[in-house]
Simulated scan of single mutants.
Amino acid sequence: MLFSLYTNDCTSTDPSVKLLKFADDTTVIGLIQDGDESVYRQEVEQLAAWCSLNNLELNTLKTVKMIVDFRRNTPALPPLTIMNSTAPTVESFRFLGTTISQDLKWDTHIDSIIKKAQQRLYFLRQLKKFNLLQELITQFYSAVIESVLCTSITVWFGSTTKSDIRRLQRMVRTAERIIGAPLPTLQELYTSRVRKRALKINLDPSHPGHLLFDLLPSGRHYRAAITRTARHKNSFFPQAIYLLNS
């Protein structure tokens, strides 16, 4: 809390650049239009200057740059230099436990969580072997395995391929056989969490996404999001509006 208070005034001054902070992890997200990176680079420089002024040191060795661009002809952008150190451009990076790829596909992230869940299934089998009560084994599954499978599920599940969903659901079915009791499917968990998150945002006027929940004149349903790509259609806000209307 003290560190959060200390860094509270470290913010972006331009609406096209967002500064995301979680404890000592900071991410700069910039919307670059017409190839003009000047505002984004200025914000990065201001961040470095703020850290220097406030006796904090940026770890440039752990700083990377990722470009998300779906145009057919992607122009080459100059390297990003921070304090005389060039940030390498990567195809994916791990952000607060979630692996984000520049093509916004989730294969790498799903491979990671399946591997982690498989390792934890061993402990589930051991608990079953020692005849622990079914209720307690189910609680262990929810806390240790389901929590891994559902990490940031509201972000990636809607855009996941059917093949990857089957891979994930096999983990749930394996746990069901070990426990000997039915477990909620990932689709059920995704739907529940999206709806819960959407209701929370809808009740919070200070949330940046609050205005996206626009009631129709009837007052019974929300205006559907205008989407032009399947990627956008399957993302959180269009899916949240759809679930609130259903």
Rank of each mutant, 00 (worst) to 15 (best):
V148T: 10
N54W: 15
Y141D: 04
N131E: 11
Q118V: 03
H207I: 02
D111V: 03
K162E: 13
I179L: 07
V17P: 05
T7L: 08
F3G: 02
K116S: 12
R193F: 04
G97R: 00
D111F: 09
L124I: 03
P238T: 08
H210G: 00
S4H: 12
T160W: 02
F22H: 07
I165V: 14
G180R: 08
I137P: 01
Y141M: 05
G30Y: 02
P78Y: 02
L124A: 05
A87E: 00
R173T: 13
L211E: 10
Y40Q: 12
L77F: 08
T99M: 04
F236H: 01
V172T: 08
K129R: 15
D14Q: 13
C10A: 14
A181D: 03
D14M: 04
D111Q: 12
T174F: 05
S163Q: 15
L127K: 06
I67P: 00
R170I: 05
L203S: 15
D107K: 13
L47Q: 11
R193V: 05
I241K: 04
I114F: 07
R120G: 11
V144G: 04
N234S: 08
Y6Q: 07
T99H: 05
V148C: 02
T227H: 01
N54V: 11
I145R: 04
E37W: 05
Y40E: 10
W50V: 05
K233Q: 15
V68Q: 08
Y40H: 13
L189F: 01
N73S: 12
E91C: 11
A181Q: 06
P205G: 06
D9V: 09
P79F: 08
S218G: 10
N202I: 00
T161Q: 14
H109R: 07
A198W: 01
R166M: 12
L212A: 13
R177Y: 10
F95S: 09
A198E: 01
D103K: 06
A48F: 12
E146F: 00
Y6D: 12
F157N: 00
Y122S: 04
F3A: 07
C51W: 00
L132Q: 13
R125F: 14
R223C: 06
L215D: 02
L211C: 15
A143S: 15
S147D: 09
L96C: 14
Y40F: 15
K115D: 12
F157H: 13
A23I: 08
P75W: 08
T227R: 06
S192E: 09
K18A: 13
H221V: 14
I165R: 15
I145F: 09
L211G: 08
K105R: 15
I67T: 09
L31Y: 03
R223W: 01
K116Q: 14
S4C: 12
L19I: 10
